[in-house]
Computed example of a mutant assay.
Amino acid sequence: MLNVIIVDDEEFARSSLYFLLQENCENVHICGIAKSVDEARNLLLKYDVDLIFLDIAMPGKNGFELIPDARANNSQVVFTTAFDQYALKAIKASALDYLLKPIDIDELKETVEKASKFIVFAGYEQDRNERLKNLSLSLTEKTEIKKLSLPNSQGTTLVGTEEIIHIEAASNYSVFHLEKREKITVSRVLKEYEELLPDSQFVRIHKSSIINLNFLKEFNFKNGLEVLLKNGEKIAVSRRRVSDFMEKVKSYTGNNSDK
């Protein structure tokens, strides 16, 4: 059973999420509902909270200001928001999950199931703290995301974007090929990382491949367009992505030559 609190300044949002959880998630116990960060802090002091459904844009203190309290309480965070693009990228990188309003029932069920799995997983407290710490840093720096938290069979691994050589799609999974590390397989689709990673450095060259241009050694047209990466791997560029690839390479090499 997951102990849950809902934090949102809008009455309709609070009541609708409460109803959806009550009707569709049998393993959820709603400990309390808060309409501000301060009220949520009181609930965290009173209850052993596993999961926080947290709105971002609230008057007074926004949802991000609750992150340190969530870390101290070892609580996982799911953002419920329609916030700006940068925040969504940071949330994808570090939070357990996010739900866009209006909340879809099936997505809510998946999120609760994901939370349950994390909580029973050995070492989950440390994993959660690492994700939330990374989120706080990302939002404070206000720059492109420098690190990703990758949940995998061993727990959660924090990976710098500069370590990523390329990412390979494998059905509904993404396989990260890393510099000086073993491959890491993550149960998220490639499109999520395509949207998340800085497009000045990463380019999708095929439906099943994203490469880091910093590891591009050469490309040639011997058998269609093919790239050779610095780790020796060769990957074909699909015909419909050739133009985009060439533009990205031109832009990337031009920007780096100015430095």
Rank of each mutant, 00 (worst) to 15 (best):
L2N: 05
I6Y: 10
D8W: 07
R14E: 10
S16V: 14
L17T: 05
L17C: 03
L21A: 02
V28G: 00
C31M: 14
G32W: 09
I33S: 12
A34L: 12
K35M: 12
K35V: 03
S36H: 09
Y47A: 09
F53R: 07
F53W: 00
L54S: 01
A57M: 13
E65S: 15
L66H: 09
P68Y: 13
N73H: 15
N73R: 15
N74Q: 12
S75R: 12
V78D: 10
V78F: 05
V78I: 15
F79R: 03
F79M: 03
L88N: 07
L88A: 03
A93R: 05
L96E: 06
D97V: 03
D97Y: 01
K101S: 07
E107I: 02
K109F: 01
E113K: 11
K114I: 00
V120I: 15
V120M: 11
F121R: 07
F121C: 04
D127I: 10
E130M: 15
E130H: 12
E130P: 00
R131V: 04
L132D: 05
K133E: 15
L135W: 12
L139Q: 06
K142F: 11
K142E: 11
S153R: 10
Q154S: 08
Q154N: 10
T156A: 09
T157C: 04
V159K: 06
V159R: 00
E162F: 14
E163Y: 01
H166I: 00
I167T: 04
Y173W: 11
Y173I: 06
V175M: 06
E182H: 12
T185Y: 03
V186L: 10
V189P: 07
Y193H: 07
P198T: 13
D199H: 13
S209I: 06
I211M: 01
N212A: 11
N220H: 14
F221H: 14
N223G: 11
L225D: 03
L228F: 14
N231R: 11
N231E: 10
G232T: 13
G232K: 10
E233T: 14
A236L: 07
M246E: 14
E247Y: 06
E247W: 04
T253P: 00
N255D: 13
